[in-house]
Computed example of a mutant assay.
Amino acid sequence: MGCINGDGRPVSSRGMCKTCYEKERTSQIYRPCIEQGCSGNQVSRGLCGKHYQRTLSHERSCRVSGCSGKMRTRDLCHRHYRELKKGVEFTQPPTKYTECSYEDCSKPHEAKGYCSKHYKWHRSGVNIPSRELLDQERNELKINGRRRCKGCQKEKPLAEFTHYPDGYPFAHCRPCASLNQRLRNYGISSEFYRRILLFQGNRCGICGTETPGRGRTWDIDHDHFCCSGNSKACGKCTRGLLCGRCNSFGLAWYEQLPESMRDFDLLNEYLANPPAQRMRAESTQRTTSRVTGTCAEEAEDRPAN
């Protein structure tokens, strides 16, 4: 008995020779997907695997009540299928936010249903004020024309604050905001900055002047050889607070001189033992003596064997 196509070759399967059967089989397997613009091969219902799975997911949803997730395995979505494998009870999926859930805030959702600003408030434990309180505070600021800076704790005109797009002023005035940015760049905290300034007696670390000179804040001096290749300093190389003249025109010029020409005792003394280094040493010494004294008292109170 020959092939049904009439070429006289012996039958291999389904009344066809091996060559005709392979052609028929491949023509059925490698048919293009009926979706427009798709070059995939048909798998079921005239669709490729990708479009067939999409059809199934659109037709059926997760069997857990209240879940609108797409069905994937065992009539469950990915989330509930993982819970089934772990052997835990099914939980409801979290609400999907697109905008901030705070009243009258249309900013994009960041986390926990809030935008980035309101999420920081929520994470820090601050009670998010209502819109009426914010409007009332904004109106009072417009009437008074002044606000207390959160950094220097001084009441200043609103012109000295940067404002949000809605006209509400920032919590810090411009000098304090600039100082906070500089502190981040130098890798030190505001508390460390205040400790150094108090240690220096609110004076320049070199000349002893009580005014910073240029600008409104003291210049932060650090060892440039420590963090020369980084955009931000590590904080450990901070040496002290200087006025504008000593930092720009005195120390910057003096450090570039050869060692043989550095004969100015005032600057040599500052570079050899800067204020920040002395402050750290005294703080370490006080901590050590405190711990030693506590251990000695405990040894005296301990009964002898």
Results as ranks from 00 to 15, higher is better:
28 Q>W: 09
276 A>G: 01
168 Y>K: 05
3 C>I: 04
213 G>T: 02
255 E>L: 10
295 C>D: 09
136 Q>H: 09
273 N>L: 09
124 S>W: 11
168 Y>M: 06
61 S>G: 15
285 Q>W: 09
258 P>G: 03
9 R>Q: 14
160 E>H: 05
41 N>F: 14
197 L>D: 00
239 R>C: 00
276 A>W: 03
153 Q>G: 08
111 A>M: 07
158 L>Y: 02
92 Q>G: 06
281 A>R: 11
301 D>H: 09
61 S>K: 15
149 C>W: 01
83 E>A: 11
260 S>L: 09
5 N>C: 10
200 Q>M: 02
296 A>D: 07
140 E>G: 04
204 C>L: 03
225 F>E: 13
223 D>P: 00
37 G>V: 09
215 G>R: 03
111 A>I: 06
291 V>Q: 13
185 N>T: 12
259 E>D: 14
71 M>A: 08
171 A>I: 08
121 W>E: 08
287 T>Q: 15
85 K>M: 11
60 R>Y: 11
224 H>N: 06
125 G>Q: 02
176 C>A: 04
263 D>A: 12
245 R>W: 12
159 A>W: 12
166 D>I: 10
57 S>N: 11
269 E>H: 14
170 F>H: 13
123 R>I: 02
142 K>M: 11
3 C>F: 09
91 T>S: 13
251 L>N: 00
139 N>C: 12
291 V>T: 12
104 D>E: 12
201 G>T: 04
145 G>K: 07
195 R>Y: 04
154 K>P: 01
221 D>I: 01
163 H>T: 10
269 E>Y: 10
132 E>F: 05
89 E>N: 14
104 D>G: 06
35 E>K: 13
36 Q>E: 13
232 K>V: 12
297 E>H: 13
181 Q>S: 15
14 R>H: 14
188 I>E: 00
249 F>R: 15
291 V>C: 10
272 A>P: 08
285 Q>F: 08
109 H>E: 05
13 S>E: 12
151 G>E: 02
66 G>I: 04
287 T>L: 15
211 T>E: 13
198 L>D: 15
189 S>T: 15
277 Q>D: 14
150 K>F: 11
219 D>C: 11
90 F>I: 05
131 R>V: 10
234 C>K: 04
254 Y>L: 05
45 R>W: 06
71 M>T: 03
88 V>F: 12
34 I>C: 12
